[in-house]
Write a protein that binds this DNA or RNA. Structure first.
Lengths: 132, 132
DNA sequence: ACTCATACTCCTTTTTTTATTAGTAACTCA
DNA sequence: TGAGTTACTAATAAAAAAAGGAGTATGAGT
């Protein structure tokens, strides 16, 4: 993580919005790539780092790790460490996280109803891993 | 806007997520800074460019402009141009946009219940405009 | 002694997002 | 003629997010 510059307009604007409405704080948390997916997978009992990684084809270790840390910090998931070898760690959704997934579900339903299907530009070549 | 590189992992991952669930498309639209604020203001009948700018202290012309364009493109708001001088343009929420604000409202309620109040780091110096 | 596995962290580079600055048209009013 | 208005766009710079690649601890198995 690089340092934040606290006096940039960028940061001031972020503060302005978060102060203005909680909605902006919420969107700041869940608006980042992978976050909602990870949350939903954990809700569905995909509870280990390696399993999450399998499900989220293309995510890198470091990104998954930081997403998990953010979710723990926001108390949307809990982390349980088992002292055994090889190391085992499990993540579980919290009541707060569960409540959030319900709203996210509605957001998704809105999308299904209102976002027009459009022929999206597709990547020209296949993924490195051959899928897609 | 600079060109997208369609074969970067970055872009492939974005496609992966959007294909996986509509939720990611939705979050891609509303997860960006200012977007939800602008949508809500327009819902509250703040319908002109200059009025929106007044409300959103710190936003720059070009950013507001691109947020409005995105919202129009996503059909969350409509744009009406009056041919008079000085030029007048009005934005109005669409039924689809209205439905979205209802879900956003719930998201906000979730935040109010579940996001802990924390003493946020405050910018060291005041805004250029002297507010805050 | 060496390799393996899990679940990470750290540092660097790439890509995207957000902001800054300057400029436009078209017509009005002084 | 020249300044003022609204609602922009375009080019560029700064900041943040995302990805790439290497490295770590702990024992257990061979």
């Amino acid at each position: 993580m690089s340092e934040r510059k606290f006096n940039s307009t960028n940061t001031l604007n972020e503060f302005f919005l978060e102060e203005r409405c909680t909605l902006n704080k919420v969107l700041k948390i869940i608006g980042k790539r992978w976050v909602s997916e990870v949350l939903v997978l954990i809700k569905q009992d995909v509870s280990r780092f390696s399993n999450l990684k399998e499900c989220l084809d293309g995510i890198s270790d470091n990104v998954l790790s930081s997403v998990l840390n953010e979710l723990v910090k926001s108390k949307l998931i809990g982390k349980e460490i088992f002292n055994q070898v090889p190391l085992k760690v499990e993540y579980h959704i919290t009541p707060s996280g569960l409540a959030l997934t319900n709203v996210l579900h509605q957001l998704c339903d809105w999308g299904k109803e209102h976002i027009a299907y459009e022929t999206r530009m597709k990547p020209t070549f296949a993924r490195k891993d051959g899928k897609d």
